[in-house]
């Protein structure tokens, strides 16, 4: 099975970009500037309201025509679509976790004369991030599942090679797809394990 490197590289790149996007959008949603808040809200609603597969096609076919820009490779299109979509979902988690940090913490930080940047970096985020971890793990599995969609915009990932194998020998279809499913599951196993671990970490040492 070739094509595994594409699946993994898309997963890693879109995960990094997606988490980045989630933090940027999540913090923007909490901004005191109403324009930034509304604009991010619009981005989040659009990307959560339409489905990933439609966004993928739209970025692949429509955007280059609409704005006369080339996004480069379809690898980049896939990564951008997955990252923007799951970034929108995860930004809600970022926002929720930051809001869930006890109010007294913010007040204490203000009382200690910290700047708002210091307050966020030193007090709020360290507490909020551990709350986000389990959900982030769940979304990483979602993103792994989403990487199979890049096959639809013409990338040679493992699903592509699986389909070639099937069309070479039609009677092989059950084996091929079962193998693919097992393959994805093996990729997902470490993430599942990490997620469970993250749940333990996020509960540890937190007064409730």
């Amino acid at each position: 099975m070739r094509g595994i490197n594409i699946t993994i590289s898309v997963l890693i790149a879109s995960a990094i970009l997606g988490y980045l996007m989630a933090f940027v959008a999540g913090l923007c949603r909490l901004s005191s500037n109403i324009i930034i808040r509304k604009a991010t809200g619009f981005y989040i609603e659009v990307f959560r309201g339409t489905s990933l597969i439609v966004q993928l096609f739209w970025l692949y076919y429509a955007v280059p025509m609409l704005f006369d820009i080339q996004l480069g490779s379809n690898w980049l299109v896939g990564v951008i679509a997955i990252a923007l979509n799951y970034g929108a979902y995860m930004s809600e988690i970022v926002r929720g976790s930051i809001l869930a940090v006890a109010k007294g913490q913010t007040e204490a930080a203000t009382a200690l004369n910290m700047s708002s940047f210091q307050r966020m970096r030193l007090i709020i985020l360290p507490q909020a991030v551990r709350m986000m971890l389990p959900e982030f793990g769940n979304y990483l599995i979602q993103m792994l599942k989403a990487t199979s969609l890049v096959y639809l915009i013409g990338m040679n990932d493992i699903l592509y090679y699986g389909n070639i194998l099937r069309s070479n020998d039609l009677s092989q279809a059950p084996t091929v797809y079962l193998l693919l499913l097992v393959f994805y599951f093996i990729l997902a196993l470490p993430i599942i394990w990490l997620t469970r671990k993250a749940e333990v970490i996020s509960k540890k040492g937190v007064a409730s």
Binding site: I141, L144, K145, A146, T147, S148, L149, Y151, L152, L159, G162, Y177, L180, L181, Y184, F185, A188, I191, I192
Partner: peptide, 8 residues
Amino acid sequence: RSTPPLVQ
């Protein structure tokens, strides 16, 4: 749950 619905 953790394998892609597309492949399924």
